[in-house]
Simulated assay, not measured.
Amino acid sequence: MSSVLQNAAFMAKSLGFDVLESLTTALNDAGYNNQTTKEVMIQSTDSAVLVKLKQQKAKYKLVYTLQPGIGDASASSLADVKEFAEAVVVDRSSFFAQSVHFIINQTSLLTDLQSAGLTVYAQVFRNEFVSQPWDFFGDETVEINNYAQSLNVDGLITDFPKTVRRYKSKLRLRSFIRVLLLVLFRLICSIDGCGAPAEPFRAFI
């Protein structure tokens, strides 16, 4: 379960409405502060909001949203973020440098964040090909696979959850087939004896 807090400071100062207090009260009244089966995350672009929650010793995962366009992070800034957040949300375009919608190279941001012990979520994935670099051929599944398998981000935030579920189901099927082929290969080898897998087989697994 994830809750996104936006404009909390404005609402508190200008409208006299403490959205942070209302949110934590609602979560606590629902019993989310005394359970371990579901992870509850509170996400905000305002570090002051997360600092306040940290001071209250809230039993929720605090997630800080970074501004788009950041390509790296200094050790001092990472240490500051670690003071009030366990995870960060990063715009997916921040992981690559681009030119004319083509990827030039990967930035150091993901390595910096994960090396500091922060969980990294990439956002926002959409099915429309115009929102993707041309390297992904207008295929949302290719893009998701790149972030999940090549970059190894910790999670994805998407406007199209069915697309991600479809990708995960295909990934599980591929893993099952891979294991099945390995079992068959070893069974055949135990009977007839054989060397390394043939090239097409090795390419598949």
Rank of each mutant, 00 (worst) to 15 (best):
V153N: 07
K54W: 02
I177G: 03
R166F: 05
T65S: 11
Y167T: 05
E39V: 12
N33A: 12
F201S: 09
G155D: 03
L181M: 15
T119V: 14
L66D: 04
V4I: 05
D135W: 07
E83D: 14
L180Q: 10
L182M: 10
S22Y: 13
A79L: 04
N152Q: 14
G193L: 13
Q43D: 04
A87T: 11
F129P: 11
E143N: 01
S175W: 04
E143D: 01
G155F: 11
S76N: 00
V40A: 00
V40R: 01
R126H: 04
V88S: 04
K57M: 09
L15K: 01
L23K: 07
N34E: 15
L151R: 09
R202P: 00
L171T: 14
A97M: 13
V4L: 08
L27A: 07
K61R: 10
E39G: 08
S150Y: 05
L182P: 00
L62W: 02
N127F: 00
T25V: 05
D112S: 12
L173I: 03
N127L: 07
V81N: 06
K162L: 11
I177Q: 15
F185N: 08
Q114P: 04
S47Q: 12
T107W: 06
E39P: 02
S131F: 12
S93D: 11
S108H: 10
R165D: 13
Q67C: 09
R165W: 06
A8G: 06
A75V: 03
C189R: 01
T107I: 09
C194P: 00
I144T: 12
A79M: 00
A79W: 02
R202V: 02
N34F: 05
E86S: 06
L151N: 06
I103C: 02
A30F: 08
Y32V: 03
L181T: 11
D154E: 04
D139K: 04
L15E: 04
S3Q: 13
V120R: 07
L113Y: 03
K54T: 15
F129A: 13
K52Q: 15
S44Q: 08
D46E: 15
D80A: 15
L181Y: 01
S44H: 01
S93E: 09
T25P: 00
Q123C: 00
L15Q: 03
S2Y: 03
T163I: 11
R165S: 11
I144V: 13
A148V: 05
Q123D: 08
Q98W: 07
V153M: 05
V120A: 00
F201E: 05
E39L: 15
L171H: 15
T37E: 14
Y147I: 03
K168H: 10
I104C: 06
F137D: 14
A87N: 05
F17S: 12
L109T: 03
N105F: 06
P197C: 02
I188R: 07
A196H: 02
T119G: 05
T141M: 09
V90A: 06
E143T: 09
S44V: 03
E83K: 14
N33T: 13
P161K: 04
P68A: 12
G31A: 14
C194W: 09
N105D: 13
T111V: 07
F136S: 12
S76M: 03
I104K: 15
I144R: 10
D18L: 02
S94M: 12
Y32K: 06
A12L: 14
L110T: 11
F10A: 12
F176N: 06
